Computed example of a mutant assay.
Amino acid sequence: MYTKDQFSVSLPVMCDFVRAKSFGVLATYHDGTVHTSPLPVDLRAAQDGELFVAGHVARANDMAEAFAAQPPATITVLGPDTYVPAEWFGTRSRIPTWLYCAVEISGRLELSDAARTRADVVQLIDRLQKRTVDGSTWSLGEIPEKLAEGHLKNIVGFRLRDLTFKSCFRLNQRKGETESLAEALGAEADSARRELAGLVLDPPTAHAE
């Protein structure tokens, strides 16, 4: 991913962004083919503090064959984005552009066995349940074991290790006409554009550590 210093955020901000979205596109290359797959993304820290991503794909997904070879891979997590016409800058002398937020996580794929895959799925569900439903106590254990095992047999788990991070929060930094742009974005019905209105006024890149 191409980026510049003014579009980059700190590692803690990237981690918060990825955990808030918890969904991205995994891409890898194996046996002459580029494989991509949208999937849940669970960014976690090991006991020694090392960051890794736990995830899974359908067993029928051709990408699953690549995991045993431990190929390099990248996960892209996207946030809000929008096309910006010249008029939104309050002038007709600006080139239209695109605003977006994205984090890339690159590393080495590592195949998970059945026990680790189940543990990772349970932990992912627990985190997302509690975040999505106030006071949720639902767990995988509420599904009949045969049904749960059937679902788990149909997926292949992996972990992405040895991570490197890149970010690009392209929010009109250093371009001017910020207030006009934010006002135009905030007036739109689209939720992504309204979210970008706040980010344009106070980009997270300004708080990089």
Score class of each variant (00 low, 15 high):
Tyr83Thr: 04
Val133Asn: 12
Ala114Lys: 10
Glu50Gln: 14
Ser10Gln: 05
Arg59Tyr: 00
Pro40Asp: 08
Asp5Arg: 12
Thr74Gly: 00
His35Gln: 13
Gly150Cys: 07
Val122Ser: 03
His56Val: 06
Ser22Phe: 01
Glu104Leu: 01
Asp62Leu: 09
Ala197Asp: 01
Thr82Tyr: 05
Leu99Asp: 00
Ile105Arg: 01
Val122Glu: 11
Pro203Thr: 02
Leu147Asp: 14
Leu147Tyr: 10
Met1Cys: 13
Pro85Gly: 10
Pro85Met: 05
Pro203Asp: 00
Asp190His: 12
Pro144Cys: 03
Trp138Lys: 13
Glu65Val: 08
Ala197Ile: 05
Ser22Cys: 11
Ser10Tyr: 02
Thr82His: 03
Thr117Trp: 02
Asp162Tyr: 04
Leu181Ile: 07
Cys101Tyr: 02
Leu109Ser: 03
Arg194Thr: 08
Gly150Asp: 07
Leu26Cys: 07
Gln70Thr: 12
Gln173Val: 03
Phe158Lys: 08
Asp126Met: 02
Val9Trp: 01
Lys166Pro: 03
Arg193Ala: 12
Val9Ser: 11
Val133Phe: 15
Ala148His: 07
Gly32Trp: 13
Gln70Leu: 01
Ser106His: 06
Glu183His: 05
Ala20Lys: 12
Met63Glu: 09
Leu152Val: 11
Ser8Thr: 14
Ile155Met: 12
Phe165Gln: 02
Ala148Ile: 01
Gln123Ser: 10
Glu177Thr: 10
Ser167Thr: 05
Arg127Phe: 09
Pro12Ser: 09
Glu183Lys: 12
Arg94Ser: 10
Gly79Phe: 00
Phe17Tyr: 05
Glu188Leu: 10
Ala206Gln: 09
Arg174Gly: 00
Gly198Trp: 04
Lys21Asn: 10
Thr3Trp: 00
Gly49Ser: 10
Ala68Ile: 15
Asp126Leu: 03
Thr74Ala: 01
Gln123Asn: 12
His35Tyr: 15
Asp5Glu: 14
Ala54Cys: 11
Glu145Lys: 13
Thr178Arg: 10
Ala66Asp: 01
Tyr2Gln: 07
Thr117Arg: 06
Phe67Ile: 06
Cys15Gly: 11
Ala119Asp: 07
Thr178Gly: 04
Val156Met: 07
Val53Pro: 05
Thr3Asn: 06
Asn172Ile: 02
Val53Met: 08
Val121Arg: 01
Thr137Gly: 06
Glu209Asp: 13
Asp42Thr: 03
Ala58Asp: 12
Ala58Gly: 15
Ser93Met: 12
Leu78Lys: 01
Thr97Asp: 06
His30Lys: 05
Ala27Ser: 15
Ser191Asn: 10
Phe17Cys: 11
Arg118Trp: 08
Ala119Gly: 01
Asn154Ser: 15
Leu147Phe: 12
Leu43His: 04
Asp202Thr: 02
Thr74Ile: 09
Phe23Asn: 12
Leu26Ile: 13
Thr74Phe: 00
Thr164Ser: 13
Pro40Ser: 07
Thr74Asn: 02
Ala73Asp: 06
Phe89Cys: 05
Lys4Ile: 11
Glu142Asp: 10
Asp5Ala: 11
Glu195Gly: 13
Gly24Asn: 04
Ala64Met: 07
Ile155Ser: 08
Met14Ile: 04
Ala46Gln: 14
Glu195Arg: 11
Ala148Lys: 15
Leu99Gln: 03
Phe165Glu: 02
